[in-house]
Simulated assay, not measured.
Amino acid sequence: MANVLITGATGLVGGHLLRMLIQQPEIARITAATRRPLTTIPAEVHNPHDPQLTDALAQVDDPVDIVFCCLGTTRREAGSKEAFVHADYTLVVDTALTGQRLGAQHMLVVSAMGANAHSPFFYNRVKGEMEEALIAQQWPRLTIARPSMLLGDREVRRTNESLLAPLFAFLPGNWKSIEARDVARALLKEALSPQKEGVNIITSAKLREIAASQA
């Protein structure tokens, strides 16, 4: 039985993952730290919340075995480069540090295809810097998921994704778009699989493969 901490539970991947965790008998306790309170969740899900997610994380005191971070936005949604860095770098690192404070041994994070700390593209560079920061924390086990374009019903539609989704559906390999629920399914499978020490980077094509094996 495992105790888990999840951030990003109000998002596309995180919402699917939270619902899967609730149905998973191998999960003993779920702590979902969010900016706004969750709705329609079982009483056994602990939901510390605060508009400042870091303050919500500071409220978590119970031991944790596994940490999931499904935070992610775009520069347009965030409103500025600084706000994007705060959401996709700072809060991810804060999630990881909270997990380490609570004794977690396995961190799983949703990054992005193309993540590279030396990329000339701002989005990919921030994602890569985030990955490097987590690797530097020297987790016993760190799983980094790099999905392609995510498919699913968002509360707020992203124009670029709506326009490009039909194209990405026909691209090969890692470029092919992926359902958010499949990313969540793959993360859960990896979290509950036998221990694989060190850093494990999972490409989008591999995420689809893992998810298909659980269907």
Rank of each mutant, 00 (worst) to 15 (best):
V93L: 12
Y123N: 00
K176Y: 02
H86E: 13
R141S: 14
F84M: 11
A43K: 13
D182P: 00
K206V: 07
E161R: 09
K206L: 06
K127Q: 03
Q138C: 14
R146G: 00
D94M: 08
T31M: 03
T54D: 15
F84Q: 07
G99F: 01
K127D: 01
Q23R: 14
P166G: 09
V199H: 07
P63R: 10
L91C: 13
T143A: 06
Q137K: 12
M113H: 05
A212Q: 10
A56K: 13
Q24Y: 08
S148Y: 08
A205R: 11
I135R: 15
H49G: 11
L164P: 11
G103E: 02
N3F: 02
Q23G: 09
N124A: 05
K176W: 01
A112R: 02
I210M: 01
G128F: 04
Q137D: 12
R101I: 04
A115C: 07
R125N: 03
V109I: 06
V64I: 15
E179N: 05
D65S: 12
W139Q: 08
A212D: 09
K189N: 10
N47Q: 12
E197L: 13
Q137C: 08
H118W: 05
S193R: 02
F121W: 09
R181V: 11
T31P: 01
E197P: 04
T143D: 10
T90K: 08
L38P: 06
G114I: 03
L102M: 09
R141I: 08
V92Y: 05
S162Q: 15
D50V: 13
T39V: 12
D88S: 05
R181C: 04
T143C: 05
P166H: 06
A212R: 08
S162C: 14
G128Q: 06
S162H: 13
G8V: 00
R29H: 15
A9Y: 07
M149D: 07
V85F: 07
V110F: 01
V45C: 10
L12W: 09
P48F: 05
V64A: 05
A186H: 04
A212V: 00
A165W: 12
Q105K: 14
A43D: 14
L167I: 14
E132S: 13
L167V: 15
H86D: 12
S119K: 09
I22P: 12
I22R: 13
F68Y: 11
D94A: 15
I135N: 13
Q23H: 12
T54I: 15
H16A: 09
L97G: 01
T7H: 02
S148E: 04
Q59R: 07
L91W: 04
L102G: 09
K81T: 06
A58D: 14
G11L: 03
A104W: 03
S148M: 09
E129H: 09
F84T: 07
T7M: 02
P172K: 10
I144G: 01
A145P: 00
G114Q: 05
W175T: 03
R157C: 09
L21S: 10
D50N: 15
A136D: 15
H118K: 13
E131Q: 12
S204F: 11
M149R: 10
G8R: 00
A145I: 00
M113W: 06
